[in-house]
Nucleic acid binder design. Sequence first.
RNA 1: GGCCUCAUCGUCUAGCCCGGUCUAGGACGGAUGGUUCUCAGCCAUCAAACCUGGGUUCAAAUCCCAGUGGGGCUGCCA
Length: 474
Amino acid sequence: MEVRTRFAPSPTGFLHIGGLRTALFNFLWSRKNNGKFLLRIEDTDKARTVPGALENIVQTLKDFHLNFDEELYLQSERLEVYKKYAEELVANGHAYYCFCMQERLEQLRKRQQDQKQPPKYDKYCLTHQEDPSEPHVIRLNVPADKTIRFTDVVHGEIAVSSNDLDDQVLLKSDGFPTYHLANVVDDHLMQISHVIRGDEWIPSTPKHVLLYSAFGWESPQFVHLPLLLTKSRKKLSKREGDVAVKDFLEQGYLPEALLNFVALLGWNPKTEQEIFNLRELVEQFSLDKLNKAGAVFDLEKLEWLNGVYIRSLKVEDLFARISPYLVKAGFEIDKYPKEFLLRILFLEQARLKKLSEIGDRVKYFFDDPQYDPQLLIWKKTDKKIILDSLQKLQSFLQTLPQEKFTGQILEEEIKKFIEIEKLKTGEVLWPLRVAISGLEASPGPFEIMDAFGALSNGKEVVLKRLSAAAEKLF
RNA sequence: GGCCUCAUCGUCUAGCCCGGUCUAGGACGGAUGGUUCUCAGCCAUCAAACCUGGGUUCAAAUCCCAGUGGGGCUGCCA
């Protein structure tokens, strides 16, 4: 039998991290088995549907190369289908019309809760039918005293008493199906072989199993994934801050890193490999390597992984991806030679955790730095020593032709200069670096000057900053 | 409250199914040292966990039971 999986999000918000993982695992399992991966939008709640959410889901999947097969299915376009099947259930006694008003249901629920009874519909309408032209819903007629069993691929056998199940609404009074109906009908009609979804669905799976058998259909394989948790071990949800994939992308997490990271939440390869591209994930993925326990979404490890991916990028590629962030930071990058920009990126590459950090890090390449003069003074030296070293350095660099303004040569020349002048390395390099970067922590002075070397006035800029530094010390 | 479910370092996890090789392995984060003017990177070292209690067994992280703790669900939401 062909493996057919689906990702079935509701368009109630932008795709979030948990959804991305669910989509990924469905995708991987289908690809692993040369099967099909479907995208089905479960837009059966008109009130909760968010404009733009559908587009965001489709776009995000595309960003991660999780391409779906067949057409895009929208449940809101299949209303007649669900209605037909709901009526079929009514006809054979597995469901019934319910005319109860919201008010009665609320009272019922309240009474049950006060008596510490589990809230459940009391089947009133099963025996009190009204005019079918009156507004009504269709409810599942859950039989009493039955044990409902199903096998979950990750959890094993799960058994529940039908007495603990409520007569779930299948078709709402507005003619829309509820999740339970639409999901079961579509999974059957679309011949889904594996239902891979979050653990939060385990409690409603028995209802689904009941539906499959009421229709006389075979159930698919159920694969419930461990929940993604916040640091406080609560289910990751849209409410809790930045979980929209879009936000991560905008902060400059690379899709490859995000995907790699999310793949390792609730799944592991049973080897010590940690870095995976999509192809490798397809190769190594299997359902028996799935975990049962919920996994905390740990931002620190994501940052590390993102750094790994950033470092592995070719500078040209990094440039392509990061230039929007440079523009956003206000740098007019098209006024600078590309070589200059590439050199800057090359030296920041190992330091970046997220692309969005680039603006702050490279400011000093575009604007003269502002800093406290005290910063120029290295360790236990004093103002006088530093000023002296700065002035000597200045006149020395003055004599160097612009062609010699490349990292390699500069390093040799300056080290030679230090030796001849009998200065300490730190006395020269520290203030030099601070003078040109304005920073306590930055790339090395030779690297920075090397980058400036790609500018026609590079030497000029460096010398100007050196004399500005000397002036600050007066 | 009821039902379901989970339980190894702070976090992601390996080991558990098929008990001994586990003085419990890896990674992130942390600490320390090396490279070095600083930071990052890289390299090295260290600290850090089998929820508790019973059983079964010569032997239990691994099997069984109970407890505890966490989480999920309990809507004409998905």
